[in-house]
Write a protein that binds this DNA or RNA. Structure first.
Length: 705
DNA sequence: GATACTTCAATGCG
DNA sequence: CCGCATTGAAGTAT
């Protein structure tokens, strides 16, 4: 019956289409071990507990993100937490059997390879015991160990071959991208797979999944662009990385579900469709409507679960709480335009409207920092209020669906709209104390804002955009730089700067760090390449419209009006370089809150054990930003940071040229506070006090130094 | 189960 | 800067 309906062209008589069975009890359409009734959910949505331990958020307050939950962190916070934050039940422990989260014992230190193998075996066993779908168990060797169902993709053979383009007679180099991907997956902390490999996602699993995807994507892109030759056509590292993740099962929430997706928070942003696919937010790789088929939903009707509105059709984005969404179809690349039909996604939306189902909405926007790309904003749960058919500009029938945002959810898309208004001067930014605290020292203004209390501003300091007084730093190896007149080009094996970075440019074409290795070698004063060279990213100054703002309990903090992609350079740590003795003295007396100390111990990037230790810096570096500094001096500490630092060495003949650069660890939505891990100074210096940490993260160590 | 089809991508070129 | 062709991969439909 439905089948027949689906075959019809757009009916003039809509009542026929809408002849839907009466609303029945909403049976969960996804497997859930518990809580089969959704009646307790005030929003009438899926019977999943709210994901965020901190929620619900009051209107107008952006959710606080870094709620990592992992066995490891649980343990840590239980042991240390001197300023106990209220212990909240985590969604994980509530939703799944405890024994599925046995903490890996041998896995966290020592030989990565052997612990991996052990861990993998244990996981396979675990999966059987728990009755999990074994195909979801992450096994990085899945392909090579011979899954016959994978042969189709395998046969394509991802291989980038590099001919010697520089005439130096170097033989062609073959790089097997699958092998590269495999190596990267092998280098991941096995604990991470234990978190990811679970039917229900968590904040951790989502963040880990996205982090791994980014590393894969950037690395594959870096290799491919440096080995370009016979390869024609579009390079799509986003698809390659995504496909690897899919085939290896490195993904979260692989079971499609209606309503909230555990671990994905409203306001989360994405830069590729595949990212949303991998975390279970929106599974089609291209299509705009995601839906459960009648078979999958165990119902007689398909039901919509999520939509992406990003300009592919003539949508009306409404006032921020309403969206007029166009149905799919009616466009065929060969046959041209036609009437849309009530089938597939359109049918699912129609049914969902009558059921009153939750529909997730993702809004795609042009990324102002990279106009060629898009940014996708997860805007939470909407309900379909109305549907109709209208004539599009093409003259053919198009389905339209009116969706209204469910009230009481954290702000997401409306933040973007507000910022746009500030940009257009259509509305003023409230609470501005200073329009530009850099006094023009940066290319973009950095405003000082307080809409929290009566503080008029931070203590006086002089704004300087970069490091000064480099005495105190031991000279680094002298270097004569490169002679890449038009800028260093990927694949140029003769460029000494590229050689110092292991044969690749350290930055992608989009300007992201391709790799999280410990030291980045940039071109410098002794290079002949222009300032626009891709290997001078940290020298271009601020790009983001940052603001220094008053936090509720941590003094002043730093955040950005612009979304920041994972891997993007944000700023350096400017200030005055001091020697160890002076740093010790100032630090010991807790006189200087603005010391950067490269020797502190950091817990960086637990996903990649090789990068956990502090970066290998050529020589210790101590910077004070108390009297002179830049925006970095306002970045607060967090035990679950969204920013990290890396040392950068710039090619310079005689002078030391070492800088501290901050990069985004993950995508950071606008107006979210930027934080990094200050690290721990051990042993404590005489007289030095630990400072209570107020980061609020589940992984909070309780203090920093 | 294999295969075809659909699809609000993402790139790079002109 | 934008229009266009090109290449693509998951999931659904057949």
């Amino acid at each position: 019956m439905d089948h027949n309906l689906g075959q019809e062209s757009v009916p003039a008589d809509k009542s026929r289409v809408l002849n839907v069975k009466p609303l029945r009890t909403l049976v969960p359409v996804f497997p859930s071990p518990s809580n089969p009734s959704s009646s307790s959910n005030p929003q009438g949505g899926a019977p999943f507990v709210a994901v965020s331990p901190a929620g619900p958020f009051p209107a107008g307050v952006a959710p606080f993100y870094p709620f990592f939950v992992s066995p490891e962190s649980q343990r840590l916070s239980e042991q240390h937490a001197p300023n106990p934050t209220p212990q909240r039940a985590t969604p994980i422990s509530a939703a799944v059997p405890i024994n599925s989260f046995k903490t890996p014992t041998a896995a966290t230190n020592g030989d990565v390879g052997s612990s991996r193998r052990k861990s993998r075996g244990r996981r396979g066993q675990l999966a059987e015991e728990e009755g999990y779908d074994n195909t979801e168990v992450i096994d990085v060797d899945a392909e090579t160990e011979g899954g016959s169902s994978k042969r189709k993709k395998r046969a394509k053979g991802r291989r980038a071959s590099a001919a010697a383009t520089d005439g130096s007679g170097v033989a062609a180099v073959d790089v097997d991208l699958d092998a590269v991907a495999h190596d990267i997956l092998q280098s991941i902390n096995p604990m991470v797979f234990d978190v990811i490999n679970h039917p229900d996602g968590s904040r951790d699993s989502v963040i880990y999944t996205l982090m791994i995807y980014e590393v894969l994507r950037r690395k594959l892109g870096q290799i491919e662009e440096s080995t370009k030759d016979l390869h024609t056509g579009a390079k799509r590292p986003d698809l390659k990385a995504g496909n690897v993740m899919m085939t290896k099962g490195v993904r979260s929430n692989s079971k499609k579900r209606i309503g909230i997706v555990p671990g994905v928070e409203i306001g989360d942003i994405f830069f590729f469709r595949f990212e949303m696919c991998l975390v279970g937010l929106h599974s089609p790789s291209m299509a705009g409507i995601d839906y459960l088929t009648s078979k999958a939903s165990q119902e007689e009707e398909p039901l919509a679960v999520s939509i992406v509105s990003s300009g592919g059709y003539e949508d009306d984005t409404g006032d921020g709480d309403v969206l007029i969404y166009s149905g799919q179809g009616g466009v065929n690349r060969e046959k041209g335009a036609s009437d849309q039909k009530l089938e597939r996604g359109n049918l699912a939306l129609e049914k969902s409207m009558h059921r009153g189902n939750d529909v997730r909405v993702i809004r795609g926007l042009k990324d102002v920092m990279h106009p060629s790309g898009k940014v996708y904003v997860y805007d939470g749960i909407y309900k379909i209020q109305d549907s109709w058919v209208e004539k599009a500009k093409s003259g053919f029938n198009v389905f339209k669906y009116k969706l209204a945002r469910v009230r009481g959810q954290p702000e997401a898309y409306t933040i973007w709209k507000s910022i746009q208004q500030w940009t257009d001067k259509a509305a003023p930014r409230t609470g501005v104390i200073l329009p530009d605290l850099t006094s023009g020292a940066e290319k973009v203004p950095v405003c000082l804002v307080n809409d929290v209390d009566n503080e008029k501003g931070p203590a006086y300091f002089t704004y300087i955009p970069t490091l000064k007084n480099l005495r105190g730093v031991a000279p680094v190896e002298s270097s004569f730089g490169c002679s890449c007149i038009g800028g260093c080009q990927p694949g140029n094996r003769n460029c000494p700067c590229i050689q110092k970075n292991g044969g690749y440019l350290p930055y992608t074409a989009a300007g992201l760090v391709a790799d999280l290795k410990s030291v980045i070698h940039e071109c410098g004063p002794s290079c002949q390449c222009p300032p626009t060279c891709r290997n001078r990213i940290s020298q271009a100054g601020l790009k983001f419209r940052l603001e220094v703002f008053r936090t509720s309990n941590k003094g002043w903090g730093l955040r950005s009006w612009d979304a920041i992609r994972a891997g993007t350079f944000i700023c350096e740590y400017a200030g005055e370089v001091i020697d160890n003795a002076r740093a010790e003295m100032l630090g010991a007396e807790n006189e200087d809150e603005y010391i950067f100390d490269s020797t502190r111990i950091y817990q960086q990037l637990e996903v990649f054990p090789a990068n956990i230790e502090a970066p290998k810096i050529p020589s210790p570096l101590y910077i004070t930003a108390k009297n002179e500094g830049n925006v970095a001096r306002f970045m607060n500490h967090s035990c679950s940071p969204n920013v990290l630092w890396r040392p950068i060495v710039r090619e310079n003949k005689n002078e030391p040229d070492l800088h501290i650069a901050f990069f985004a660890i993950r995508h950071i939505p606008p107006m979210m506070e930027l934080t990094y891990d200050y690290g721990i100074n051990l042993p404590l210096k005489a007289g030095q006090r630990k400072k209570n940490c107020l980061c609020g993260s589940v992984k909070c160590r309780g203090y920093f130094c």
